[in-house]
Nucleic acid binder design. Structure first.
Lengths: 196, 196
DNA sequence: CAAGCAAGCAAACAAGCGTTCGATAAGGAG
DNA sequence: CTCCTTATCGAACGCTTGTTTGCTTGCTTG
């Protein structure tokens, strides 16, 4: 029986991880099946036993990336905390999975734009991403914001700030937690209801 | 005598514009010299009379893109206005050059990541970008912010929010001016000094 | 031990890539 | 008329790409 998801340690999982590393470093187009094969110690043709095509491999990498990010976000959240705290925790989890060297997955969803891929692939990628975005949308929905504040804009603004850290962040800078707290705070006081 | 910049209407300029359109649509790697040649009605080899390589052509496109964005930003600013107003105007100019269909240049600096290119090209691209970022840095420097607010974070947060609109914006949504004002306002009240 | 399947190797394929190069037409300068 | 430059064509070169195919190993199961 074939697995559809990646068991940790399986060959399929090894390939996905190597592919993720290369996709993150060079981008989809500039990554060759030979690069990926070489990283796993295999020959190019052997990859096709596990994945039908480069696109399918990328879709698997993308799904795994979303999975890892969502895990990191969910793990960072204390469900008993108030919405503002939970948002701060979610942002921290997101940035951690994006900025720490050992995890190379999150950068992919920032740098790869579904619009540029084939229709089939594009729809898969967009589907994956919605799982991630809902995580934040749900928290933002519970935030006590002033009347008249557009929660859509509010959420997109925050996600934009966070995603863009991937562009300017350099190792040795402030840790993800500090950045996350700073950014949430920047958006907070203006739109929040007065603490009664 | 060769020109180094693009005279409007020149052959070189025509190529740059066609290339920009294709780079924006498909990305650097997925854009072929044959695509660009075909858009201008030339044959692939003919492009090499005007540009020594694909990288050099892209560098020219990138420089032109920065130029166009900076123009759009500067044109939107009223130098006599106060810093908050000028920031709002700058943001509007940026979004206009990015989100309006007729200009295809701004998307390139959001979707192409210098880190992934050769060292030579990378350094050129980063150099271009600094011209654009200084435009915003200068205004942010003059903003009357509360003591203790990190202007670096503040600027990066705003630029992230703005750049990310390229990912989620769809034609028919709010006009750039509304988005720019909304986003500046979101960051404003928290960190601004009280209006004395 | 025999059979069968999982996994990978080795080698090739056609297509497409960036780029090169000699030829060529058009037009201005002397 | 001759010479030189500008701009392009037409055709190819060498290389890399994603992918396919037939063969071989090695483990597992009966």
């Amino acid at each position: 029986m074939a697995y559809t998801k990646a068991d940790p340690g399986s060959r399929r999982d090894t390939i996905i991880e190597a592919a993720a590393r290369q996709f993150a470093k060079a981008g989809y187009d500039a990554t060759t099946m030979r690069d990926i094969a070489s990283l796993t110690g295999m020959l190019p043709g052997s990859l096709y036993y596990h994945f039908r095509s480069k696109e399918e491999l990328f879709a698997a990498v993308h799904e795994e990336a979303i999975q890892k990010i969502c895990d990191s976000v969910v793990r960072a959240i204390d469900p008993a905390a108030d919405p503002w705290t939970r948002l701060e925790q979610a942002a921290t989890g997101y940035l951690e999975s994006m900025l720490m060297h050992d995890s190379v997955y999150a950068g992919i969803i920032v740098t790869e734009f579904p619009r540029r891929r084939s229709r089939n692939l594009r729809e898969q990628l967009i589907g994956h991403r919605q799982r991630f975005e809902r995580l934040f949308a749900d928290i933002v929905e519970e935030l006590p914001l002033k009347d008249g504040v557009d929660r859509s804009y509010w959420r997109l603004a925050l996600l934009g700030m966070l995603a863009w850290t991937y562009v300017w962040y350099r190792p040795g800078g402030d840790p993800p937690k500090v950045i996350a707290q700073t950014m949430v705070k920047m958006l907070r006081n203006d739109t929040a209801q007065a603490d009664s």
